[in-house]
Simulated assay, not measured.
Amino acid sequence: MDQELAQIKQLQQKIALYEDMKAYEQLYGLLYPGLHRFACAFVKSRDTAQDIVSDVFIKLWQIRGRLMEIENLKVYLFTLARNFSYNYLTQQFKKVVLSLDEADPEVLISFDDPESLCISADAVGKIRLAIRQLPPQCRIIFQLVKEEGMKYKEVADVLHLSVLTVRNQVAIATRKIAALLPAGELRAAFKNIK
């Protein structure tokens, strides 16, 4: 994951200093899938989530001259996606009071990468079942940590939670998933879920 952060930092620099469109496109390709799943969990629409992520990257381009002031661009972009999702929901429903518990994290978990295919179909089914049974906030936190590779502090910053809450939610998710899998499958599953 440090390699990804280094790559993001390098792309951030190219965009900020040289207005490099290729770097901008590479950053988009790198972060779009996770941002899309994250926004989709809130707005419950893949098309709307796509629009939100597009808005996030438009905003990124608009502030490109100040990008070097941003310490962790990935956390910044996930925070923008969350805020844009909240704004969208507020505009749509005027009186929406949204909490993480109302988000639909089912769309967040993806087993489409080749490594995940090494896990038996039965294990994947059990993992999906366990993840669906997690409380919504727990599911979102689990996805950000395990799939997006974010650190607890980064997830806490994005979701306005304490690091302790994030750590506890990951532990809860891990225990619940572990309860449904034999030990060998569990090790393989968590090795292959980022």
Rank of each mutant, 00 (worst) to 15 (best):
Lys146Arg: 11
Leu144Thr: 04
Leu77Ser: 09
Met21Gly: 03
Pro33Ile: 06
Arg139Gly: 11
Cys118Val: 06
Leu134Trp: 08
Arg132Thr: 06
Val107Asp: 00
Val97Leu: 14
Thr165Asp: 11
Ile109Leu: 13
Leu80Pro: 02
Asp2Arg: 15
Ala23Ile: 07
Phe38Asp: 01
Leu11Thr: 04
Asp122Tyr: 05
Lys14Glu: 06
Val166Pro: 08
Ile131Thr: 08
Tyr32Arg: 07
Glu185Asn: 15
Gln12His: 07
Val96Pro: 03
Ala173Cys: 14
Asn87Gln: 13
Ala6Gln: 02
Glu106Pro: 00
Gly34Lys: 11
Gly34Pro: 03
Asp55Gln: 12
Lys191Thr: 02
Gln7Leu: 10
Ile172Asn: 11
Ile193Met: 14
Glu106His: 14
Glu19Thr: 03
Asp47Ile: 13
Asn168Val: 04
Leu100Phe: 04
Gln169Asn: 14
Val166Met: 07
Tyr88Thr: 02
Arg46Leu: 10
Ile15Val: 05
Asp2Gln: 11
Leu129Ile: 09
Leu11Glu: 02
Arg37Ile: 07
Phe84Lys: 12
Val75Thr: 15
Leu67Gln: 10
Met1Arg: 03
Cys138Leu: 01
Gly125Cys: 07
Leu30Glu: 01
Ile109Thr: 09
Pro114Asn: 04
Tyr18Gln: 12
Val75Ile: 13
Gly29Ile: 04
Glu25Met: 01
Val158Tyr: 00
Lys151Ala: 01
Lys59Leu: 08
Leu164Pro: 07
Val163Gln: 14
Arg82Gly: 02
Ile70Pro: 03
Lys191Tyr: 01
Glu185Phe: 06
Phe142Ser: 14
Lys94Thr: 07
